[in-house]
Design a protein around this nucleic acid. Structure first.
Lengths: 236, 236
DNA sequence: CATCAATCTCGAACGCGTTCGACTCCCTCT
DNA sequence: AGAGGGAGTCGAACGCGTTCGAGATTGATG
C-alpha cells in the first residue's frame, strides 16, 4: 500500500471517523480549494472536534496526501486496461500518460499544493523521499510494464533496464507542466504529452542504435546517479 | 533588475530601514533556518515594529526572494569571467553550472523554501510565472551566451535558436537535484553536473547531424510548446 | 459486574503570518 | 511659519495550523 508511516485507525469506529474526515476534507477542498479550506471547517462539517482531525492526520498536508495516494491507485487500475490493449511503445506510453491526466484532472485546482510540498525536501510527499519510496517504486514498475509489453521496438538491455526510471522522471515533468497549465481541459498538457511521447519514441529508436553506444552509456551513468540520490546517505 | 513588482522604499530613510530588515532577516535565516525564523524575531532584532516589516515586504517569502534575486545577480557576474575564459561548449556550460552551484551553496539550508514556493503556480517566485519573466529571460540569455561563444561545435540554426531554453530547463532540473542533495559540499550535484554536461554535449553533437533532422524537429516542436506555456493565456 | 488500559474525543491555548487603522515624521508649497 | 499630505511606523487583533492534557468510550480480563 501507499500509506507509508501513517496515523492510527485501530478500531472499526476509528476507521469510520477517519474515513469521514477524509471524505469531508475532499468535499471541502473541491468546493473551496486548499488554502480556503480550514481544519476547523473540516472538523465542523464532519461533526468532530478539531483535535480529532489531528488525531488521525498529523497535518493538513497529510490529509491531502492520503487522498492523493488514492488517485495513484486509481491510475494504476485504469492503466491496466490500456496496457492490455496497446502493443506499441508509443501507444502504451501515450495511453498511460493520458490516463494519468484523466485521473488527476478533478484535482487540478489544488494540485499546486501537492507539488509545493512535493518540492520541499522535508516533506514526506516529496517523490524522492524515503516515505514515498513504495509509491515511487510502484510507479516505476508501471513504466517498466509499459516498456516490457512493447513488442514493436528492439531496445538494448542496458537501456531497457533504465528506461522505466527515465520515463518516471519524464512523467514527473509532465505533472509539473500540468500543474501550471491553466488551459481549459488541460489542452496544453495533452498536446505536450503527444509531442513528448513522439519525441521519446524517436529518441529511444535513435539511442538504441549500436552507433549510439557512447551516448547511451553517458545517459545511463547519469541515470544511475539520479537513482543513487534517491537512496539515503549518511544523514546530516 | 530582478525586482519585479516590489514594495516601497521611496525615501532615503525608507531605503535604510528596508536594507536593515533584509540583512537582519538573512542573519537570522542563516542562524536558525527559515521556519524557525519568525517575522517577530526579525522585527525585534532589527529594532522595528512587526508592521514595519510588512510595510516593506508583502510576506515572509518575499523577504527570501529579495535576497535570492541578489544571488542571481552574483551568478551573472561570476559567469562573465568563465565565459571569457572558456571556448568550448563543454567548458562553458560546465563552468557556468559550477559557478551557479558555488553562488548558491551558502543558502542551501533554506533553499527548500525557495523551491517550495517556486513550484506553486500562484507564487511570483515560480520560474514560469509572469513576474519572474525578466529574471528568466536574463537566465536564458546567459545560456544563449554559453552557446554563442562555443567555437568548437557546428550546431544547426534551428537547434541553436532553441538550445538556450533547453539549457535553462536543464539548469532548473539541476537546481531541483541540488535542493535535495544532502551530501557534504553538494558532492553529488557536482558529479551530476559533470555527467549531465557530458551527456548534453554528446547529445548536441548527435542531434546536429543532418540524419537526425526528424528527431530534432520533434524536439523543437516540444520546446516551442513549453515556451508558449510560459506566455499568458486567456485567464480563468 | 468491576477494573483497567488502550483508543478515541474534546476544545482551550499557543505561536505564527498577516492585516489594519491610527499615529508620527518630514518634505513641500504658499 | 503654517498647512497639507505622502511616507514611514506602530502594535493590537485576526484567523489559521497545530499541540496538549484531560476526559469519555470501548472491549478484554478477572
Amino acid at each position: 500500500m501507499t500509506d507509508g508511516a501513517e496515523a492510527p485507525a485501530r478500531t472499526a469506529r476509528g476507521e469510520q471517523t477517519r474515513a469521514l474526515i477524509v471524505s469531508t476534507a475532499i468535499e471541502l477542498f473541491r468546493e473551496r480549494g486548499y488554502e480556503e479550506t480550514t481544519m476547523r471547517a473540516v472538523a465542523e462539517r464532519a461533526g468532530v472536534a478539531l483535535g480529532s482531525a489531528y488525531y488521525y492526520f498529523r497535518s493538513k498536508d497529510e490529509l491531502v496526501q492520503t487522498f492523493y495516494a488514492r488517485t495513484h491507485e486509481e491510475h494504476l487500475a485504469a492503466s491496466a486496461e490500456v496496457l492490455r490493449r496497446e502493443p506499441t511503445l508509443r501507444g502504451r506510453l501515450a495511453g498511460v500518460m493520458r490516463t494519468k491526466l484523466e485521473t488527476i484532472e478533478p484535482y487540478h485546482q489544488f494540485a499546486g499544493v501537492l507539488f509545493r510540498s512535493a518540492a520541499d525536501p522535508a516533506s514526506p510527499l516529496n517523490p524522492f523521499s524515503e516515505p514515498s519510496r513504495p509509491v515511487r517504486e510502484q510507479a516505476v514498475e508501471l513504466f517498466a510494464e509499459v516498456v516490457r509489453g512493447a513488442t514493436d521496438r528492439r531496445v538494448p538491455p542496458d537501456l531497457r533496464a533504465e528506461l522505466p526510471h527515465l520515463l518516471w522522471l519524464y512523467h514527473m515533468g509532465i505533472i509539473l507542466f500540468w500543474i501550471h497549465d491553466a488551459t481549459p481541459g488541460r489542452r496544453r498538457t495533452r498536446r505536450m504529452v503527444d509531442l513528448s511521447v513522439d519525441l521519446i519514441v524517436r529518441a529511444v529508436a535513435v539511442t538504441s542504435s549500436p552507433l549510439m553506444r557512447p551516448l547511451r552509456t553517458s545517459l545511463l551513468r547519469l541515470l544511475k546517479e539520479v537513482e543513487a540520490a534517491g537512496a539515503p546517505e549518511p544523514e546530516g
